[in-house]
Computed example of a mutant assay.
Amino acid sequence: MAKLTITNNLRRLRFDANEMTQKDLAEKVGVTRQTIVAIENAKYSPTLELAILISRVFGKPLEEVFNIDDAA
């Protein structure tokens, strides 16, 4: 099975949310700014719990925040 890549729209969503900073988002979901940076850069896949918390911050369904790129 090919490895799946999780992509996200965090940067755009932060911008649309009154230019929310990475630090602001991190504080809202209880992680470090570095964790948000790693997620945005697809270096780290969030846990399901964290992904749900992030989607709730933006008031968006999970599928509008995170996507799975399964093209091999």
Rank of each mutant, 00 (worst) to 15 (best):
M1H: 13
M1A: 13
M1G: 15
A2Y: 12
K3N: 13
L4V: 10
L4W: 01
T5C: 10
T5A: 12
I6V: 15
T7P: 04
N8C: 10
N8D: 10
N9Y: 05
N9W: 04
L10Y: 06
R11E: 15
R12I: 12
L13E: 09
R14F: 08
D16F: 12
A17Y: 14
N18V: 04
N18D: 15
M20C: 03
M20K: 06
M20H: 03
Q22D: 08
Q22I: 03
K23I: 12
D24E: 15
L25P: 04
L25Y: 06
A26T: 02
E27C: 02
E27F: 05
K28T: 05
V29L: 00
V31E: 01
V31I: 07
T32A: 07
T32G: 04
T32D: 12
R33S: 07
Q34T: 12
T35D: 06
A38K: 15
I39Y: 08
E40S: 02
E40V: 03
N41K: 14
K43A: 08
K43E: 13
Y44S: 09
Y44M: 13
S45E: 14
S45I: 10
P46G: 01
T47A: 03
T47D: 07
E49C: 00
A51D: 01
A51T: 02
A51Q: 02
I52T: 09
I52W: 07
L53E: 13
L53H: 10
L53P: 00
I54F: 00
I54G: 01
S55K: 07
S55W: 05
S55I: 06
R56D: 14
V57S: 09
V57M: 08
F58S: 09
F58K: 06
G59Y: 11
K60C: 14
P61T: 10
P61K: 05
L62V: 03
L62Y: 13
L62W: 09
L62D: 03
E63C: 07
E64M: 00
E64R: 11
E64Q: 14
E64T: 02
V65M: 09
F66Y: 10
N67V: 09
I68E: 01
I68G: 03
D69P: 00
D69T: 05
D69S: 05
D69I: 08
A71Y: 08
A72W: 09
A72I: 02
A72F: 10
A72P: 14
